[in-house]
Design a protein around this nucleic acid. Structure first.
Lengths: 239, 239
DNA sequence: ACAAAAAACTAACTTAGGTTGTAGTGCTTA
DNA sequence: TAAGCACTACAACCTAAGTTAGTTTTTTGT
């Protein structure tokens, strides 16, 4: 099922059951990938748009000096590169952070949706614009916040996004990253990421154990990180 | 004239003179704006797509605590938000960094181009995907590089982009930012930005005076910053 | 051509974050 | 049931970047 995607898109528009069918039929069967496996590699030209059904993946760039930077998390309901056919090659890679279940939309199916299903096309487009907004917010997060509020901001965002995908229970959700991976996304070392996490724990703002994150004090966490969810654009449109 | 835009798009596809006409006619007359003026404000819903003809502008976010972060530079040939009609409100603002000449494309004209001029639509789409790739690269730049190579990377990128827009003469181009503004884009203070700039000068890599930047040693600058222009996707397509 | 205001530059000192190293705590898998 | 490995935790020390507070230079407006 493409449930997480439908969940997410429903924050933008309500899809008819016919539209859901179109999506369902356009995708291949589920494919499994293992933790650490590369889903799309830099310089490649992908033939499919991938949908994450289960698990987490990430966009990342590996630099010559060995530095590795994570630029985005992909969680259930997220799509990789809806508009792959426009650019010749990928300028970064995507890999599984956990075991992942994927479905693939062949480029032709995608083109068909874009041309013959305007509402769906619009909804998918919306999701890519939100991805871009998230990217901007991450840039601001790195550019303006110290380690502790920076980490807090990541936690706030991922709670909301997990909820939107239907993967959260109240204040609690799967957060399957190692501290090293967290550091790679925030431009911090593993050690300093740990220091920041300890502080958030000491203050009683979050609990993170066995890959499950619980937000213990949403208001204070939000305030500490100056989190403002506007950039996620998930308010149901008023039109 | 929409010259800088046509210049830029020509790196993706050669436009027919008819297609150039379509663009030319779709836009309003040139509008002037002063340095510091806000072109689009957060929370607004813009009615037009703006094209920068002359001068520099930036996307930025102003945080509650007064921090200000620049997330993108817009130079001649760059468009602001081709797909404005999809999202309800802007999650950031755009302002002029210098006196700027703009042209506006009304949303309806844009829609017309998207629906009836597929090649143009594709080319405009390409330009937004490149903008996104630049954003990702900036994230990596902030996350992985120290001040000096980080600044060097900004210089490398802007030389190439200025060339693509037709605004550079060999190794030299207009670079109208104050050091404070440069710092705001790299997540550094004015003071530290100055330190980094001094080093690049001492090493004989760049010269920056009277708002004009000259790259004195491209190879070393490129190497220092590990600049790899792939992400600008400007190689003429092989198809 | 001049004064006023920005912007650029410099230095001294503080702090956030990086580095290295070590120890402990689970998980696997054999 | 132990060996091995990935991850977490934490301490000591080091360095890049922030802060504050100046001075000098360049731009701008009249």
């Amino acid at each position: 099922m493409i449930e997480a995607l439908v969940n997410k898109l429903s924050y933008y528009m309500t899809l008819s059951s016919e539209e859901k069918q179109v999506l369902e039929k356009a995708a291949t069967r589920s494919v499994q990938m293992e933790k650490g496996e590369i889903i799309i590699n830099e310089n490649e030209r992908p033939e499919h748009v991938y949908l994450i059904e289960k698990g987490w993946a990430c966009r990342y760039k590996l630099l010559e000096n060995g530095d590795n930077h994570i630029m985005a998390y992909l969680i259930p309901g997220d799509l990789c590169d809806v508009h792959i056919t426009i650019l010749e090659v990928m300028d970064h890679s995507i890999r599984a952070l956990t075991p992942v279940t994927l479905r693939k939309f062949p480029a032709d199916e995608m083109r068909n949706i874009m041309e013959n299903h305007h509402r769906l096309a619009r909804a998918l487009f919306w999701s890519t614009l939100v991805d871009e907004a998230v990217l901007r917010e991450w840039l601001v997060n790195m550019g303006t916040r110290l380690a502790e509020p920076r980490l807090a901001h990541v936690f706030c965002e991922m709670l909301i996004r997990s909820r939107i995908a239907g993967c959260a229970e109240n204040e609690s959700f799967e957060f399957p990253l190692s501290q090293a991976e967290l550091g790679e996304t925030m431009g911090l070392t593993e050690v300093h990421t740990n220091r920041a996490l300890q502080k958030l724990r000491q203050k009683g703002l979050v609990s993170l154990e066995k890959k499950r994150l619980t937000i213990l004090d949403w208001e204070r966490l939000k305030q500490l990180s100056q989190f403002d969810p506007i950039y996620l654009h998930y308010q149901k449109q008023s039109r």
